[in-house]
């Protein structure tokens, strides 16, 4: 294992930014710290980097206790949100910087830096100033600069937040591809759950300075452990339902007039909070509806090209649903019948 946090706490005066977290990042994997702004994910990343030292707890990197060591003494490097390219140096000098500081000769540093630039496809940009590069190119320089030091852990702090949507998808695929090709250990911070799901082996979701849940992207999306997580990982509608257990692996959820059998081994009978994914709600005209449906009325309808979005008043509350049938749009005021797919109805415990 490459990075290990044991009961780490970070306080700034009275305020607690990170309230006692423990986790492990296995070597060769990409782990994402995900959470809303102010949840402590960036502070956690900076504690891995050594830019902040923990108030309590232990940090171990590559088997070495580095709790009191500063950034320079740790074998990590970091790609910053703002890229932090040195504006008074050209691309090659930027990539050489860390190599020179580690004591390499000018020639060795330049050779390794060129290899690094080749990795990110910027071999012909050596002489450019950072200000002459596009956002995506600056990003790649920042990655190359961190990569050439061959750190035990590579850190990314919201690396895509300054890019436009199209470039964002491309860059995240490049980062993932690079990580898998070189077998890097990467810790990645983002507040964008889609980005997190696309790049990660594992995701650690943080909220208010604590770890809310950790696991694979699929675990978190399909089995969120808390209402916060159900809201945060993808969209979901909170609703109150009544549970009754059918067998050890299945529980029946009654929502207004319909009943859905959901895979669940632990929930107790009685009232419970359920989360309903918008894509699991099939919106149909009452005439077409099969039995066991939930009646409602369209409150708002919007056309988004690939799909329709509806807000629907029902007995179980206002539900938000997405519907792929753009050729058969419904308008506000239309009565509808909703079919709920069991896979998108999640019983939230705790």
């Amino acid at each position: 294992m490459s990075v290990q946090f044991e009961g780490v706490v970070k306080r700034y005066g009275e305020a607690t930014a990170v309230a006692g977290i423990s986790f492990t990042v296995e070597a060769g994997t990409l782990v994402t710290l995900l959470g809303p702004s102010g949840c402590g994910k960036t502070t956690t990343l900076r504690m891995i980097a050594g830019l902040e030292l923990p108030s309590e707890g232990r940090v171990v990197i590559a088997g070495r206790d580095v709790t009191t060591l500063g950034a320079t003494q740790r074998d990590v490097s970091m790609v910053f949100q703002s890229y932090a390219l040195f504006p008074h140096m050209n691309v090659l000098e930027n990539v050489c910087y860390g190599l020179r500081r580690s004591g390499q000769s000018r020639e060795d540093a330049a050779r390794h830096a060129r290899e690094g630039l080749l990795q990110v496809g910027l071999e012909s940009y050596e002489e450019r100033q950072p200000s002459e590069l596009s956002g995506g190119q600056q990003q790649r320089v920042a990655v190359a600069r961190a990569l050439v030091l061959k750190p035990s852990v590579l850190l990314f702090d919201e690396p895509l937040s300054n890019l436009d949507a199209r470039l964002r998808r491309q860059m995240r695929e490049e980062i993932r591809e690079l990580q898998q090709r070189l077998g890097l250990t990467v810790v990645y911070v983002t507040h964008d759950q889609q980005e997190a799901m696309a790049v990660s082996d594992r995701i650690i979701v943080m909220n208010a300075g604590r770890i809310e849940q950790q696991g694979s992207p699929r675990d978190l999306y399909e089995r969120p452990a808390t209402p916060f997580l159900a809201r945060f990982m993808g969209e979901s509608n909170p609703a109150r339902g009544v549970l009754s257990r059918l067998d050890p692996a299945t529980v029946r959820v009654r929502l207004g007039t319909c009943e859905i059998d959901v895979a669940n081994a632990t929930a107790a009978d009685g009232n419970a909070t359920v989360a309903i994914r918008p894509e699991a709600i099939a919106v149909e005209r009452p005439a077409d509806a099969a039995a066991n449906s939930l009646a409602g009325t369209i409150a708002k309808a919007s056309y988004l090209g690939t799909h329709m979005e509806y807000s629907i008043d029902t007995a179980a509350g206002v539900l938000f649903a997405t519907c792929p049938h753009v050729d058969r749009p419904l308008a506000a005021g239309d009565p509808v019948a909703l079919q709920l797919a069991p896979r998108g109805v999640i019983v939230v415990e705790g």
């Binding site: 320079t72 490097s77 970091m78 703002s82 932090a84 910087y97 500081r101």
Partner: peptide
């Protein structure tokens, strides 16, 4: 001057005086 420039240098093995 953006603070992350200093921090970048620190994570790139540049000690404080460097």
């Amino acid at each position: 001057i953006d603070r992350s420039l200093d921090e970048a240098s620190l994570t790139l093995r540049g000690r404080a005086p460097q």
